[in-house]
Design a binder for these strands. Structure first.
Lengths: 147, 147
DNA sequence: CACAAAGTGGGGAAAAGTGGGGAAAATGAT
DNA sequence: ATCATTTTCCCCACTTTTCCCCACTTTGTG
């Protein structure tokens, strides 16, 4: 399980240090690809293959399946760390996520997400009121199931 | 698994450098042929034979099967690298894929695809909105399995 | 406060990508 | 069959990118 939010620098060479807490849980062969709402996502190997498997289950025409495969695999790279625990974000990934000199690295359950400042503030941050509302919803939901 | 999207030059002699990351996973005896939506496709040997095997299983009339075999095998060439890691795209392949001075080389799971600029932008590129939609579908799928 | 671990930045060697010259081979015409 | 022309392919040179290594700063911890 990946937890926590970290703000790190992206240097002129596109290098980004993955926080040690998250990195130590990332096995060899993890994959970084493009994610929803304009973030980047790092998948551990099992998560990556699981994702691909589930996509195959969504009944698609051959043409749709080809497009999907091109999107997912074409956008992905193997996640390679240097001796300092950094990965290099490709120019394509940086422009997709709108990342220049800083990035937010966020542990989200089974995956790690990477955001630019602005999008993370907009999408990721939440006020006490929003937490209250969300947790109320969950509680309501549970109540109606338990009954 | 082949991953990633790369834009490379095609020189006056029709030579195209295959990205080192992809090339190192391509065994001797790989095959390049024509693919769907106007791309070229490089198959590792096992993928090539698997493809041909599966096509034999799809119940075709003998005439259709012969036509298919002529198309697939006739369009194919063995994939030969020079000392710099380049292959030569035949004139036929270049005109099929509409490739002149640049090409996109894309890792798509078990095969490598080669595209011209325009077609790749049209077929292969995807916006954050599309990635969001795809991942929504997978999440929906997962929800219905878990239930 | 001292020490260790984590994060940041940059220089330089090595690898990858690009372009062209010229020998060898193939093709075609006389 | 011979010669001319084109094509193929091997080799070399150059440029750009990648990545490996070192050093410094910051943060966290005993």
């Amino acid at each position: 399980m990946f937890l926590g939010t970290y703000r790190h620098a992206v240097d002129a060479k596109g290098r980004l240090a993955i926080p040690a807490r998250l990195r130590e849980r990332l096995p060899e062969g993890s994959v970084i690809s493009k994610g929803a709402e304009g973030c980047l996502r790092i998948y551990p190997p099992e998560e990556w293959t699981r994702e691909q498997g589930e996509q195959r289950l969504t009944s698609l025409s051959p043409a749709e399946a080809r497009r999907l495969a091109r999107m997912m695999f074409g956008a992905a790279r193997e996640c390679e760390f240097d001796a300092q625990g950094r990965i290099v974000l490709s120019a394509d990934h940086r422009s997709y996520a709108g990342i220049s000199s800083t990035a937010w690295v966020v542990g989200v359950n089974n995956v790690i997400e990477i955001w630019n400042d602005e999008d993370w503030r907009r999408i990721g941050e939440a006020t006490p009121e929003e937490y209250t509302r969300v947790q109320d919803q969950v509680a309501e939901r549970r109540r109606s199931i338990d009954r």
